[in-house]
Design a protein around this nucleic acid. Structure first.
Ligand code: FES
Ligand code: FES
Lengths: 144, 144
DNA sequence: AACATAATATGATTTTTGTCATGTGTGTTA
DNA sequence: TAACACACATGACAAAAATCATATTATGTT
């Protein structure tokens, strides 16, 4: 709805990693892709950008794959989104004007500002593992 | 941010029409496009889909153009958005799953549901002319 | 050294965005 | 009324971006 497919895959894949890695196991891209119903090669490319930005990790070779380092700091959803969509994702104008400011607001700015800020704060507050533990009474739904 | 360029242009153009039409004047596409900084031919095509869906009106020939019928019912933002993005825009899953339901929710559903509903209601409540009158203390900003 | 897998590069495909040419209806004018 | 100009309507086309697929390379494991 508001994210690109790339971001959707990035979040779903990272959720899968957080959910299934208890130690420091690796998951190869085919495992991940079939677990979240995504095109494997495309997903791999997206995960690589997450690796480069130190959101997740990877190792090559046999028994290699992608993983999340449980010992490093938790993965904040906001950082994950920004990593794929770009740093100004939450600061864009709803109507596509070049800047979203109080000084030169578009007609919808006043009404939309609050919701935008709330969404931003929601994603800044929650980590992927937060989401996983909040939902672990039912089963986690990551497939189409 | 959450809309396609098409929808952004649709909203900006309709705002321009509401703002500038006191009687039933027409505005030709070049006037509209330069007023909202949009590609004229592309914008024209978008406005034509709005005409087909009875959101705005148009007349051909000299002194023709696009206009909003002041006597017909106000243009609700929700209807405008749906007309371009499609009828299920506000019912999509944030993570791209096929359905957004309480029965099979994605991990973010619980946290996102409230905000999605609020946004939906915001757009359902406000008409384009509402927005125009709310903002008419400053000058209306529709250009990039 | 052989193998498995991520990383990288590259290309194909699809969707979105934008442009062009032509058709069609409408009003003006002679 | 006939010619003409005007501006939307329509569909073909092009460029750009996003998405998806394949091949090659590099690297770590055994
Ligand atoms: S200026 Fe448009 S949302 Fe802030
Ligand atoms: S199921 Fe994903 S937002 Fe409702």
């Amino acid at each position: 709805m508001i994210f690109s497919k790339s971001t959707e895959y990035a979040i779903r894949a990272t959720m899968f990693l957080c959910l299934n890695s208890s130690g420091n196991e690796c998951f190869k891209i085919n495992t991940i892709a079939s677990a979240i119903d995504s095109p494997p090669f495309f997903t791999s490319k997206i995960l690589q950008t997450l690796v480069r930005q130190n959101i997740i990790s990877s190792t090559k070779g046999p028994n290699g794959g992608f993983y999340v380092d449980k010992k490093s700091k938790p993965i904040i959803l906001y950082d994950l989104i920004i990593a794929v969509e770009g740093p100004d994702f939450f600061d864009k104008c709803l109507l596509g004007l070049s800047t979203c400011t109080e000084k030169n607001p578009c007609p919808l700015h006043k009404d939309f500002k609050k919701h935008k800020e709330e969404l931003k704060q929601l994603f800044k507050k929650k980590s992927v593992s937060d989401i996983m533990t909040e939902n672990n009474n039912g089963k986690i739904n990551l497939k189409i």
